[in-house]
């Protein structure tokens, strides 16, 4: 790797699948003149331009902000969620992380709860269903009051903020050997349970979100920590321990 722009020739092996019911297959492509300064998604855009010119179906993939905050650009790059770089979404991955002549394998997230819609795009509405089951605050918090009326200790504020940085991209599910959604669910639960307004419904929320998560067919956490390593936002396993505690509390208290 160097800081000087170089042009790469790449061999791409990309998963192509027409729709939910199609069996799918890998298709090999050769792409030339890829700048090391371009992003990974720009590289796929280049390929798609060529495919369109040839009258072929372009590779379908999700993308939106392209600045690492929306969580759309879900794909496995060479067997790693969002590619080889830590704390990086696919859109923030640049081609300077690759070398001339590399073969790059690109696959969609694989999980029973995230069915493939087309090529690299998966249906991740299961995450929305988990949020809808309890990832919100429904107690009446009254009118706006003086900020200092609700003391929040620094540690909890920091941890809630860290948990809230989850962008719901699904890399945790994709990287987990068990396709478990516990890191996502735990982050969405912790961000509320750690703060005074959210604490009131913490046990009930844990119970409802875990039930939804289970019913959607996600796996169980077996504490490998692959999710933590794959998370582009660095959400940590403490959140899952917190969820386990809140869930137990909900069952003990009958909520």
């Amino acid at each position: 790797m160097s800081n000087v722009e170089q042009m790469l020739t790449l061999n791409l092996k990309i998963w192509r699948q027409d729709d939910r019911n199609d069996k799918g297959r890998f298709v090999d492509y050769k792409l030339e003149e890829v700048s090391t300064d371009s992003s990974f998604l720009e590289m796929i855009d280049m390929l798609n331009d060529e495919l369109v010119k040839e009258g072929k179906d372009p590779v379908s993939f999700d993308h939106d902000c392209r600045e690492g905050i929306c969580g759309s650009c879900a794909m496995m790059v060479n067997g790693q969620a969002h590619g080889p770089n830590a704390l990086t979404t696919t859109c923030q991955l640049h081609m300077r992380s690759f070398s001339d002549g590399d073969t790059i394998v690109i696959e969609p997230w694989r999980s029973r709860a995230f069915p493939v819609l087309k090529d690299l795009r998966t249906d991740r509405s299961a995450f929305d269903k988990i949020i809808a089951a309890g990832g919100f605050i429904s107690v009446n918090t009254g009118n706006a009051q003086d900020a200092n009326n609700l003391p929040v200790n620094k540690e909890n504020a920091d941890r809630a903020m860290d948990a809230a940085s989850c962008i719901g991209c699904g890399a945790c599910v994709a990287a987990c050997p068990n396709a478990s959604a516990m890191l996502f669910t735990a982050a969405k639960m912790s961000q509320l349970a750690l703060l005074p307004q959210g604490e009131v419904e913490a046990a009930e929320r844990a119970s409802n979100m875990v039930r939804e998560m289970d019913e959607l067919g996600f796996g169980n956490c077996t504490n490998h920590a692959e999710c933590e390593a794959a998370c582009p936002k660095g959400i940590d396993l403490r959140n899952i321990a917190h969820m386990n505690r809140e869930f137990l509390k909900s069952k003990v208290s009958g909520k």
Binding site: W15, G79, E107, S111, R112, P177, A179, S180, T222, A225
Partner: peptide, 26 residues
């Protein structure tokens, strides 16, 4: 059994992060 079912289709290649799974956990 549930975890195997949840995975569904296996990856063509899966690189471990090196910071998660261990021989013992796998």
């Amino acid at each position: 059994i549930q975890n195997t079912a949840a995975r569904g289709k296996r990856y063509y290649i899966k690189n471990r992060s090196g910071h998660g799974e261990t021989i013992a956990s796998m």
